[in-house]
Structures are given as structure tokens and as C-alpha cells.
Amino acid sequence: MQIARRWLERLSLESFQTQLMGMVYGSGHAVLSRLDPRCMLIWYLFFAVAPWFISSLTVLAGMFLLLAVATVLSRAAPFILFILCLGLIGQVGWLFLLSLFFGGDAESALPLLKLTLKLSVVSLASITVFSGMDPERISDGLLALGMPAAFSFSLSYGYRILPVLLEEFRSVLLSYRLRGKAPAPGRFRYIRLAVYYLKLLVLSFYPLMLATAKRSRTTVEALEVRGFSYGMKNPASRRLKLEHLRTTWRDGVFLGGTAAYVSLLFWLG
């Protein structure tokens, strides 16, 4: 009972926000964050595409191990891993039921295990890169690889602004709850509670939309003061902005080590 209560406490909106803060602002210390973002993105591209075309269980399991280590090194937030597990169970469990329905038996669990491994390799790679690295570094890496400036800016902006938005949303929701009246105990209490909260969730977006509109105006004005839209069209200023990206021996070791490990896996499998 106590364990359950402790878990519920962890699931509250507040702790979610704290973890989010840690993820968004605290990822600069992780080991992988010191690598060159362009190398990390290319590394990610391989692990996002390759698993779909591989059917050897050994290779997939080896890749999974490598990515599990990488995820630990990137210090991903626990709630992200929790959501990942939930999603995997939901997706694969549903497929398993469906295949039982079509006359499969326990043997159909093996291909499904493969599918789970593939899905988790892809997801862990994206967790390692996109939540283990500093948002500004990812965005500079994307810019260097040719993404439009508006997209790469939105990525880092989104990361930074999310905890702030969540904080604002929480206070709006709390003030609605203070002024409102929750359903009294009685028949169908949980259904009425769910309806009540969903309605509040929707209503809270009205003040939030107005506040966010103001904030986005401030953001864009600040951007334009620094010459965002014209500066990013100018090759010289782009070069200046991206000058700090340098590949070092660390990146070489990282990419080379991964390549050696993966080819070893293919040789074994």
C-alpha cells in the first residue's frame, strides 16, 4: 500500500515538472553531451533506420545492449523510460493478442520479441540523442546539417519553454479548481470526476492561449532584434554561428567504436 502511494506521489504533475526541468536544463553535464552534435545525429540516423532491416536476434540484442549503456550515459529522466515501457507494452501486447486471435500460439511471441527489440532500439537511440544532449547543441547540429533555421530554432525553443508553460498551465488549472466545485461522492463518482477534469483541462487552454500569444510575440521580437530572419539567410553569419562545432578525437573514438562493435555483431550473427 505504501509503495503504491509512493508511486502515485511520483506521478503527480509537480514531480513531472521537476524531472522535466532536470532533463531540459541539466543535460549539459552528461558524457555524451560533449560529443559533436553532427556526429550524434548521424549516429542516430543509423540506429533509427538500420534495425528495421535486420532480422537477426543476436544483432538486435547486441544493439539493444549498446543503446542501454548509451541511455544510462545520457542520464535520461526516469519518467521518459517509464513512458517508453508503457508504450512498448501497449503496442506489442496488442499485436500479440491480435496474432493469438488469428490462430497463432506461444510461438508467435518470438517474432514479437524481435519487434519489441527493434522498437526499443529505435526509441532508445532517440532518447539518447534528443534528451541526453543540450538543446542548443542539437539545434546547431541540425542547422549545420541543413535544416531550415526556423525548425532548428523551434526545437531548442520548445525544449526551453516547456517547463515554463507547464508551470503556467498548473497555476491556471489550480485556480480553476479553487473556484470550482469537484463532483460530490455518490454514484458514478469516478466517471464524473474524469469528465470534470477533462473539462477543466480544455477550459484551461483559454487563458493559456492568450498568455502564450503574448509570449510568442515577445520571443519573435527578441529574435528579430538580433536579426534572426535576415541573419540566417546570410551564409557568412551562419558560418559564424556554427563555428564552435568541431569534431575532436572523442567523436572519432565514439563513431569508430560503434562501427567496430556493430560489425562485430554482424560477424557473430
Binding site: 526556423a150 523551434s154 507547464l166 519573435v220
Partner: peptide, 16 residues
């Protein structure tokens, strides 16, 4: 810049 404002507004709200 107004287009960019709409873009940023819609992105952050729907993302949340």
C-alpha cells in the same frame, strides 16, 4: 515576423 509568431504560438501550445 507575424508568420513566425503564429508558427511559434501554435507549436508551443499544441506541443504542450
Amino acid at each position: 515576423s507575424q508568420k513566425m509568431m503564429i508558427f511559434v504560438l501554435s507549436m508551443s501550445l499544441y506541443g504542450l
